[in-house]
Simulated scan of single mutants.
Amino acid sequence: MTTIDIPGYRSGTWTLDPAHSEVTFSVRHMMISKVRGTFGMKSATLVAPENPLEAQVQASVDVTSIDTKDEGRDGHLRSADFFDTETFPTMEFVSTGARVQDGDFFVDGDLTIRGVTKPVSFEFEFGGFGQDPYGNYKAGASASTTINREEFGLTWNAALETGGVLVGKDVTITLDLQGSLQQD
């Protein structure tokens, strides 16, 4: 069985620290620039056995918390044209496996947006491990993936007079995470 050595890694159940974690995204706007935004993390749990490649992750993101620094745009993104947050208030991720490929660490899983579930792969970068002043053992990591938003039912768009469309198809999702190892 394949395994990976991550210095400082400890097995157990890890929970997300929402105050030190963030989900961001970026998408092309008018095909000339990028719009960036954030979502609030609702919850995330990592059950980590001795072998990190056998870890299991479940995470939930509060889609109603979307913030692109433009209230009008945020309202439109919450509407049925995009996320339909009244019907689908969360985005969910459930891992299906982890792997090392060409020296990089990936977590594969099923991402559900707007009731549509598709497989995705997040490339992870471990930030490290350490103990906080209160005796809690912490871990930090960043991860990213790019999805085609139209595959998740986010198909609204507008044609531009100069050619192209208002909103790009590819969305980059970036996670900056910190979690705590649960005390027994």
Rank of each mutant, 00 (worst) to 15 (best):
V57E: 00
Q58R: 14
Q58N: 14
A59C: 03
V61H: 01
T64Y: 02
S65G: 01
S65N: 04
S65L: 04
I66A: 04
T68H: 08
T68M: 07
K69E: 08
D70W: 09
R73E: 05
D74R: 07
D74K: 04
G75Q: 11
H76E: 09
L77C: 03
A80L: 03
A80E: 14
D81V: 01
F82G: 02
F83E: 02
F83S: 00
D84E: 05
T85L: 04
T85G: 06
E86I: 12
T87V: 11
T87E: 13
T87L: 12
F88P: 11
T90F: 08
M91K: 01
E92N: 14
E92M: 03
V94T: 15
V94P: 05
S95K: 00
S95I: 00
S95P: 01
G97S: 03
G97Q: 05
A98V: 03
A98E: 02
A98K: 00
R99N: 07
V100C: 13
V100Q: 15
Q101T: 14
Q101I: 14
Q101W: 07
Q101H: 13
D102H: 15
D102W: 12
F105N: 03
V107W: 05
V107E: 11
V107G: 10
V107P: 12
D108F: 06
D110G: 10
L111Y: 04
L111S: 11
T112C: 06
I113P: 08
I113C: 11
G115D: 08
V116A: 10
P119Q: 12
P119V: 10
V120L: 06
F122T: 10
F122M: 10
F122R: 11
E123K: 15
F124D: 09
E125I: 15
F126L: 15
F126D: 03
G128Y: 08
G128T: 07
F129G: 11
F129C: 13
G130I: 11
Q131D: 14
N136Y: 07
Y137I: 09
Y137V: 07
G140I: 01
A141F: 11
S142Q: 14
A143D: 15
A143R: 08
T146R: 14
T146Y: 08
T146H: 09
I147T: 13
N148R: 12
R149F: 01
R149A: 03
R149M: 03
R149K: 06
E151H: 06
E151P: 03
F152K: 06
F152A: 05
G153E: 05
L154H: 05
T155Y: 01
T155N: 09
W156E: 09
N157Q: 05
N157P: 00
N157A: 04
A158N: 08
A158R: 11
L160K: 05
L160S: 01
E161M: 13
E161S: 13
T162Y: 02
G163L: 10
G163C: 08
G164V: 02
G164M: 04
V165H: 06
V165W: 04
L166E: 09
V167F: 03
V167M: 00
V167I: 06
G168N: 01
K169V: 00
